[in-house]
């Protein structure tokens, strides 16, 4: 299936995550939280309330001991290209798909906290701030906050922005050097940079020179809930059928094992 991303002009930033390389260490989640000023509450075990942009899901093949295997799905925002569900429903125009980059933004000051986008998102990629970010006075934990990302107030939805501020940083650098195009690797997300297994590759899906666009065409590539037709810009690679099968819902006999995918 030929996949096309974004409009004719501009870039279409996307990500390929190699699940065979991913060790499930969680560094992507921590790097994301540190980069994007995510607040931590004393109890993070309530996963309905815990705020994450990049979240790790643990899956098992369900087989009995000693044939059990575990694997992980790191899940950022998918930055859907087509009929982006959250963008379609937002009544406040607080989230938009940027036609020049393909990045789905989230504008906190416009967000009215209705959480319609959260209901619409098929990937649970959005979380709601029930409280102001937890930075109690006296602890001094706000000292590690980065000025590049504004901390969120209560009553707004937040999600992964593909580290949009890093794109701004890279563009500023390029413009000062009188360039209009970014080199590959000049703009990467914090999780991509942090992954000690180099399982995450980030770049322009529309640029055939970029590694992501090559990897996205791999016979091992697949996307989550692909058949919803939202054209996510996050691809996964796995050689394991049981992992691939968890990426979507299949009728009995519908799933094609990777050997047939490879042949076809």
């Amino acid at each position: 299936m030929e996949k096309k991303h974004g409009p004719a002009k501009g870039n279409s930033y996307g990500m390929v995550i190699d699940l065979d390389k991913c060790t499930g260490c969680g560094t992507c989640m921590v790097a994301c939280a540190a980069e994007n000023n995510l607040a931590v509450r004393p109890d993070e075990s309530d996963k309905q309330r815990s705020i994450t942009w990049m979240r790790l899901y643990k899956v098992t093949n369900g087989k009995d001991f000693p044939y059990t295997e575990v694997s992980y799905f790191p899940r950022p925002c998918m930055h859907c290209d087509h009929h982006t569900p959250c963008v379609s429903v937002c009544p406040a125009t607080a989230t938009e798909t940027d036609p020049h980059t393909g990045i789905v933004s989230q504008i906190y000051t416009r967000c009215i906290g209705c959480r319609y986008c959260m209901a619409a998102c098929p990937y649970h990629a959005r979380t709601f701030n029930w409280w102001d970010g937890y930075f109690p006075k006296g602890k001094g934990i706000e000292r590690y906050l980065s000025p590049e990302v504004s901390p969120r107030m209560r009553g707004v939805v937040e999600k992964c922005t593909f580290c949009h501020h890093r794109l701004m940083r890279a563009k500023t650098q390029a413009y000062t050097e009188d360039r209009r195009e970014l080199e590959e690797g000049e703009y990467i997300t914090a999780c991509t940079e942090a992954c000690p297994a180099q399982a995450i590759t980030f770049g322009d899906l529309k640029n055939p020179e970029h590694k992501v666009s090559r990897l996205a065409k791999s016979p091992y590539a697949f996307r989550l809930l692909e058949r919803l037709g939202t054209e996510p810009k996050v691809y996964y690679l796995s050689t394991k059928d049981w992992v691939r099968k968890l990426g979507d819902n299949y009728l009995p006999g519908e799933f094609k094992p990777v050997s047939t995918v490879k042949a076809g």
């Binding site: 560094t27 921590v30 540190a34 980069e35 590690y144 000025p147 942090a194």
Partner: peptide
């Protein structure tokens, strides 16, 4: 003010990657 810890690519032990504990060190 330190705002982020990142892996270092010019170091022989770890080519750019660190573990989640090290990544959270500023806390």
């Amino acid at each position: 003010r330190a705002v982020k810890i990142e892996g270092r690519t010019d170091f022989p032990v770890n080519p750019g990657g660190i573990c989640p504990v090290g990544m959270g060190g500023l806390q």
